[in-house]
Design a protein around this nucleic acid. Structure first.
Length: 368
DNA sequence: TAGGCCATCTGGTCCT
DNA sequence: AGGACCAGATGGCCTA
């Protein structure tokens, strides 16, 4: 047996009672985290060398309250084997700590599923997990990958697969960065140029650093990355104000005239084998929106030079236009996010790969 | 070898 | 009643 197990429901219940107490408490919410620090039950759990106990007492998890797990079935049977003594001990202690727990009528134990239903349930579960993994795979393709590396959980190269948790963290950071760029026309993108010399472009408060640098130097830095060269294709990007724009957005857009620029982008890897003329299928514009045709990848891919701007266009105006156009005028087919997919070869998110990220900050921190 | 990550099986709970 | 979802348990694989 790999590890000792015990009945965690008591501790789980205790932790949840100390927190919000809501039945569906978010796993990442972190609510009630500090309350369990001095929990004697948690301390007992921590004193036992057991991964699951560590998980149970880890303050960053707040699991939903569960009823006492039935001691039948495969997992429970295994749990009740080697860990019977520790389970009993913990139960005894917990009952001492909570003498006021109301006695519940024992629920009639549900009959175990038939072999057939168990098999079908397993198949459904596998399918469900496959779909989740597929969604993770899509997400991986849309978030910038790290070019740096280090640390157990960080990919040491762009070829290394991001873990699920790292993918989620990067996605959150990516969304925040994109949101910043969209909501703030004068968004300081200097953190991108800093990525050359220092991958830690975000401080611990998840704030974008504000190292001053000119837009030209931004591009200079961005485009001097050591990346895999790909055939460059000229593309004219034209962004016009959408009809649905808010007044402030229109105002900001006016400042950005002229709203077009010539850029060259590398041929997406999936197009390399095809006729270059196929690129026309990649970028389509109806004069109001820029659409990315299928297949939707990060259009510029990994390890590819993002885009080769005409030096004449290397000014803040164009950059702002590019970053500012997403919600109204630049639209990419899902699941791609990105004009900023062009930045895949940079690592403004490197800190996420090296530091602990508080799950409890979660999406509410980034999507408000 | 320990620890992280993952896939799978499983039972409990909720929802339709 | 049956499916979806969730979380615990377990074992395999991989890396430092």
């Amino acid at each position: 047996m790999k590890s000792m197990t015990f009945d965690q429901s008591t501790i789980m219940s205790d932790a949840n009672n100390n927190s919000s107490g809501s039945l569906g408490g978010s796993m990442l919410s972190g609510s009630g985290t500090s309350s369990s620090i001095n929990n004697p039950i948690s301390n007992i759990g921590a004193s036992i060398n057991n991964n699951n106990i560590k998980k149970a007492t880890n303050e960053k998890y707040s699991l939903r309250q569960r009823q006492k797990r039935q001691t039948s079935g495969r997992g429970a049977a295994a749990a009740s084997g080697a860990s019977a003594t520790s389970s009993a001990t913990l139960k005894d202690i917990s009952s001492d700590q909570q003498p006021t727990v109301a006695k519940e009528k024992p629920k009639p134990k549900a009959a175990p599923l038939s072999k057939y239903r168990r098999k079908t349930a397993n198949a459904r579960e596998r399918t469900r997990m496959r779909e989740i993994n597929s969604a993770f795979e899509n997400l991986r393709r849309c978030v910038p990958h790290s070019i740096g590396g280090g640390g157990r959980t960080s990919p040491s190269s762009t070829n290394e697969k991001l873990t699920k948790i790292t993918t989620l963290r990067l996605a959150m950071k990516y969304i925040r960065t994109l949101s910043e760029a969209l909501t703030n026309p004068g968004y300081d993108v200097s953190f991108l140029c800093a990525s050359n010399n220092n991958s830690n472009n975000f401080n611990n408060n998840n704030q974008v650093s504000s190292i001053p640098c000119t837009a030209t130097s931004n591009f200079d830095n961005l485009f001097t990355q050591t990346v895999v060269e790909a055939p460059m294709v000229p593309v004219k990007v034209r962004a016009t104000a959408a009809k649905s724009q808010s007044r402030s957005r229109q105002k900001a857009k006016q400042k950005l005239e002229p709203a077009s620029m010539d850029i060259s982008i590398p041929m997406p890897s999936t197009c390399l084998e095809d006729n270059p003329a196929d690129l026309g299928l990649l970028l389509e514009s109806d004069g109001e929106s820029l659409h990315l045709s299928e297949p939707c990848l990060s259009p510029l891919g990994q390890n590819m030079k993002p885009f080769n701007c005409n030096p004449a266009n290397d000014n803040p105006l164009e950059l702002s236009l590019l970053l500012d156009s997403d919600s109204d005028s630049l639209q990419f087919s899902e699941p791609c996010l990105s004009p900023l997919g062009a930045l895949d070869s940079f690592n403004p998110f490197g800190d996420l790969l090296h530091t602990e990220f508080a799950e409890h900050t979660s999406l509410d921190m980034y999507l408000t």
